[in-house]
Amino acid sequence: MLEISALNSFYGKAHILNDLDFSINRGEVVALLGRNGAGKTTTMKSIMQLVHPKSGRVSFDGADITSLPSHKIARLGLGYVPEERRIFSDLTILENLEVGRQKARKDAPVWTVEALFELFPNLWERRNNRGKAMSGGEQQMLTIARTLMGNPKLLLLDEPSEGIAPVIVEQMAKTILRFKEEGLTVIISEQNLHFARIVADRAIILESGEKKFDGTFTDLENQPDIRDAYLSV
Protein backbone atom coordinates (compact mmCIF):
# COMPACT_ATOMS: atom_id res chain seq x y z
CA MET A 1 0.00 0.00 0.00
CA LEU A 2 2.81 2.40 0.95
CA GLU A 3 6.24 1.98 -0.54
CA ILE A 4 9.28 4.00 0.44
CA SER A 5 12.49 3.64 -1.50
CA ALA A 6 15.93 5.22 -1.13
CA LEU A 7 14.54 8.22 0.76
CA ASN A 8 17.02 10.92 1.81
CA SER A 9 15.88 13.92 3.86
CA PHE A 10 17.71 16.83 5.41
CA TYR A 11 16.96 19.50 7.99
CA GLY A 12 19.11 22.32 6.79
CA LYS A 13 22.48 20.65 6.73
CA ALA A 14 21.69 17.75 9.02
CA HIS A 15 21.24 14.50 7.11
CA ILE A 16 18.26 12.93 8.84
CA LEU A 17 17.09 10.08 6.60
CA ASN A 18 19.67 7.96 4.91
CA ASP A 19 18.52 5.81 1.98
CA LEU A 20 15.47 4.61 3.82
CA ASP A 21 13.42 1.73 2.36
CA PHE A 22 10.33 0.01 3.69
CA SER A 23 6.82 -0.88 2.70
CA ILE A 24 3.51 -1.19 4.47
CA ASN A 25 0.73 -3.61 3.54
CA ARG A 26 -2.96 -2.92 3.72
CA GLY A 27 -4.50 -3.62 7.12
CA GLU A 28 -1.18 -3.73 8.92
CA VAL A 29 -0.22 -1.83 12.04
CA VAL A 30 3.49 -1.10 11.88
CA ALA A 31 5.55 0.48 14.64
CA LEU A 32 8.44 2.73 13.75
CA LEU A 33 10.83 2.41 16.65
CA GLY A 34 14.00 4.21 17.60
CA ARG A 35 15.36 6.77 19.98
CA ASN A 36 14.82 10.48 19.89
CA GLY A 37 16.35 11.89 16.78
CA ALA A 38 16.51 8.56 14.97
CA GLY A 39 14.39 9.93 12.12
CA LYS A 40 10.91 8.69 12.93
CA THR A 41 9.19 12.06 12.73
CA THR A 42 11.12 13.03 9.62
CA THR A 43 9.99 9.79 7.96
CA MET A 44 6.38 10.71 8.57
CA LYS A 45 6.85 14.30 7.48
CA SER A 46 8.62 13.14 4.33
CA ILE A 47 5.70 10.88 3.48
CA MET A 48 3.36 13.87 3.85
CA GLN A 49 5.76 16.18 1.97
CA LEU A 50 5.95 18.48 4.97
CA VAL A 51 9.66 17.83 4.66
CA HIS A 52 10.74 17.63 1.06
CA PRO A 53 13.07 14.67 0.56
CA LYS A 54 16.23 15.39 -1.42
CA SER A 55 15.94 12.08 -3.24
CA GLY A 56 13.98 8.88 -3.18
CA ARG A 57 10.40 7.94 -3.79
CA VAL A 58 7.22 7.49 -1.82
CA SER A 59 4.36 5.72 -3.51
CA PHE A 60 0.87 5.17 -2.21
CA ASP A 61 -1.51 2.67 -3.79
CA GLY A 62 0.93 2.42 -6.66
CA ALA A 63 1.03 6.15 -7.43
CA ASP A 64 4.14 8.28 -6.90
CA ILE A 65 3.27 10.95 -4.34
CA THR A 66 6.76 12.36 -3.88
CA SER A 67 6.10 15.61 -5.68
CA LEU A 68 2.50 16.23 -4.64
CA PRO A 69 1.55 19.04 -2.28
CA SER A 70 0.50 17.94 1.22
CA HIS A 71 -3.18 18.65 0.74
CA LYS A 72 -3.35 16.32 -2.27
CA ILE A 73 -1.60 13.59 -0.33
CA ALA A 74 -4.11 14.03 2.47
CA ARG A 75 -6.94 13.79 -0.04
CA LEU A 76 -5.57 10.50 -1.33
CA GLY A 77 -6.35 9.10 2.11
CA LEU A 78 -3.21 9.59 4.17
CA GLY A 79 -4.03 10.91 7.59
CA TYR A 80 -1.20 12.47 9.56
CA VAL A 81 -1.26 12.98 13.31
CA PRO A 82 1.74 15.09 14.27
CA GLU A 83 3.76 14.53 17.38
CA GLU A 84 3.42 18.13 18.53
CA ARG A 85 -0.34 17.70 18.02
CA ARG A 86 -0.72 21.10 16.44
CA ILE A 87 -4.34 21.52 17.34
CA PHE A 88 -5.86 24.85 16.43
CA SER A 89 -6.01 26.28 19.91
CA ASP A 90 -8.18 29.26 18.95
CA LEU A 91 -10.83 26.92 17.59
CA THR A 92 -13.30 24.86 19.56
CA ILE A 93 -13.15 21.07 19.50
CA LEU A 94 -16.02 20.91 17.04
CA GLU A 95 -14.32 23.45 14.79
CA ASN A 96 -11.05 21.55 14.94
CA LEU A 97 -12.90 18.48 13.72
CA GLU A 98 -14.50 20.51 10.93
CA VAL A 99 -11.08 21.50 9.57
CA GLY A 100 -10.21 17.84 9.10
CA ARG A 101 -13.46 16.87 7.41
CA GLN A 102 -13.23 15.23 3.99
CA LYS A 103 -15.66 13.25 1.85
CA ALA A 104 -16.26 9.59 2.65
CA ARG A 105 -14.10 7.04 0.86
CA LYS A 106 -15.30 3.66 -0.34
CA ASP A 107 -12.19 1.77 0.69
CA ALA A 108 -11.74 3.25 4.15
CA PRO A 109 -13.73 3.39 7.38
CA VAL A 110 -16.10 6.35 7.48
CA TRP A 111 -16.10 8.52 10.58
CA THR A 112 -18.69 10.97 11.76
CA VAL A 113 -18.50 13.49 14.53
CA GLU A 114 -20.88 11.33 16.55
CA ALA A 115 -18.78 8.20 16.07
CA LEU A 116 -15.66 10.07 17.13
CA PHE A 117 -17.32 11.41 20.25
CA GLU A 118 -18.29 7.85 21.05
CA LEU A 119 -14.67 6.84 20.64
CA PHE A 120 -13.37 9.73 22.73
CA PRO A 121 -16.12 10.58 25.22
CA ASN A 122 -13.93 13.18 26.94
CA LEU A 123 -14.08 15.32 23.83
CA TRP A 124 -17.87 15.39 23.78
CA GLU A 125 -18.02 16.98 27.20
CA ARG A 126 -15.80 19.82 26.03
CA ARG A 127 -16.98 20.09 22.44
CA ASN A 128 -17.50 23.86 22.59
CA ASN A 129 -14.31 24.59 24.49
CA ARG A 130 -11.28 26.00 22.80
CA GLY A 131 -8.21 23.85 22.34
CA LYS A 132 -6.17 26.02 24.66
CA ALA A 133 -7.67 24.68 27.86
CA MET A 134 -7.08 20.99 27.16
CA SER A 135 -4.76 18.51 28.83
CA GLY A 136 -2.09 16.66 26.85
CA GLY A 137 -4.22 13.52 26.64
CA GLU A 138 -7.26 15.40 25.39
CA GLN A 139 -5.17 17.20 22.83
CA GLN A 140 -3.86 13.87 21.61
CA MET A 141 -7.38 12.52 21.26
CA LEU A 142 -8.50 15.62 19.44
CA THR A 143 -5.65 15.55 16.98
CA ILE A 144 -6.38 11.89 16.18
CA ALA A 145 -10.09 12.57 15.86
CA ARG A 146 -9.41 15.57 13.63
CA THR A 147 -7.38 13.43 11.25
CA LEU A 148 -10.01 10.68 11.27
CA MET A 149 -12.57 13.23 10.05
CA GLY A 150 -10.73 12.94 6.73
CA ASN A 151 -11.65 9.22 6.59
CA PRO A 152 -8.06 8.14 5.90
CA LYS A 153 -6.99 4.81 4.50
CA LEU A 154 -3.61 5.00 6.14
CA LEU A 155 -3.05 6.67 9.47
CA LEU A 156 0.35 8.07 10.45
CA LEU A 157 0.54 8.43 14.23
CA ASP A 158 3.63 10.18 15.48
CA GLU A 159 4.43 9.22 19.09
CA PRO A 160 0.83 8.98 20.29
CA SER A 161 1.79 7.85 23.81
CA GLU A 162 4.28 10.59 24.50
CA GLY A 163 3.75 12.94 27.40
CA ILE A 164 0.33 11.62 28.40
CA ALA A 165 -0.85 9.93 31.56
CA PRO A 166 -0.54 6.10 31.72
CA VAL A 167 -4.28 5.61 31.96
CA ILE A 168 -4.74 7.55 28.71
CA VAL A 169 -1.94 5.59 27.09
CA GLU A 170 -3.93 2.47 27.81
CA GLN A 171 -7.02 4.00 26.27
CA MET A 172 -4.93 4.98 23.28
CA ALA A 173 -3.75 1.41 22.82
CA LYS A 174 -7.31 0.16 22.83
CA THR A 175 -8.24 2.80 20.30
CA ILE A 176 -5.48 1.78 17.93
CA LEU A 177 -6.51 -1.85 18.23
CA ARG A 178 -10.01 -0.78 17.33
CA PHE A 179 -8.71 1.01 14.22
CA LYS A 180 -7.14 -2.25 13.21
CA GLU A 181 -10.45 -4.05 13.55
CA GLU A 182 -12.06 -1.42 11.37
CA GLY A 183 -9.52 -2.23 8.69
CA LEU A 184 -7.41 0.90 8.95
CA THR A 185 -3.74 0.66 8.09
CA VAL A 186 -1.61 2.40 10.73
CA ILE A 187 2.00 3.45 11.12
CA ILE A 188 2.88 4.56 14.62
CA SER A 189 6.21 5.90 15.71
CA GLU A 190 7.14 5.03 19.26
CA GLN A 191 9.89 5.03 21.81
CA ASN A 192 7.82 2.92 24.14
CA LEU A 193 8.47 -0.69 23.18
CA HIS A 194 5.75 -2.13 25.36
CA PHE A 195 3.12 0.09 23.88
CA ALA A 196 4.30 -0.75 20.38
CA ARG A 197 4.23 -4.48 21.11
CA ILE A 198 0.64 -4.33 22.23
CA VAL A 199 -0.72 -2.52 19.21
CA ALA A 200 1.56 -3.35 16.28
CA ASP A 201 2.10 -6.39 14.06
CA ARG A 202 5.52 -5.47 12.88
CA ALA A 203 8.44 -3.32 14.01
CA ILE A 204 10.80 -1.21 11.96
CA ILE A 205 13.77 0.13 13.91
CA LEU A 206 15.51 3.31 12.86
CA GLU A 207 18.83 4.67 14.03
CA SER A 208 20.49 7.76 12.58
CA GLY A 209 18.01 7.68 9.73
CA GLU A 210 18.84 4.14 8.70
CA LYS A 211 16.71 1.03 8.95
CA LYS A 212 18.28 -1.41 11.40
CA PHE A 213 15.53 -3.96 11.77
CA ASP A 214 12.31 -4.89 10.01
CA GLY A 215 10.28 -7.83 11.29
CA THR A 216 7.83 -9.18 13.84
CA PHE A 217 8.13 -8.62 17.55
CA THR A 218 8.88 -12.31 18.00
CA ASP A 219 11.90 -11.89 15.74
CA LEU A 220 12.91 -8.90 17.80
CA GLU A 221 12.65 -10.94 21.02
CA ASN A 222 15.04 -13.42 19.51
CA GLN A 223 17.56 -10.74 18.71
CA PRO A 224 18.20 -9.08 22.08
CA ASP A 225 21.38 -7.49 20.73
CA ILE A 226 19.37 -5.33 18.35
CA ARG A 227 16.91 -4.43 21.02
CA ASP A 228 19.68 -3.43 23.39
CA ALA A 229 21.66 -1.57 20.76
CA TYR A 230 18.90 0.64 19.44
CA LEU A 231 16.11 0.79 21.95
CA SER A 232 17.16 0.35 25.54
CA VAL A 233 19.07 2.62 27.87
Binding site: L50, P69, S70, H71, A74, Y80, P82, V99, T147, G150
Partner: peptide, 9 residues
Protein backbone atom coordinates in the same frame (compact mmCIF):
# COMPACT_ATOMS: atom_id res chain seq x y z
CA UNK B 1 0.96 23.81 7.08
CA UNK B 2 -1.27 21.69 9.29
CA UNK B 3 -4.36 22.85 7.44
CA UNK B 4 -2.70 21.66 4.24
CA UNK B 5 -1.78 18.33 5.80
CA UNK B 6 -5.47 17.84 6.61
CA UNK B 7 -6.38 18.08 2.94
CA UNK B 8 -7.27 21.73 2.51
CA UNK B 9 -5.93 23.43 -0.60
Amino acid sequence: EMVGALGVN
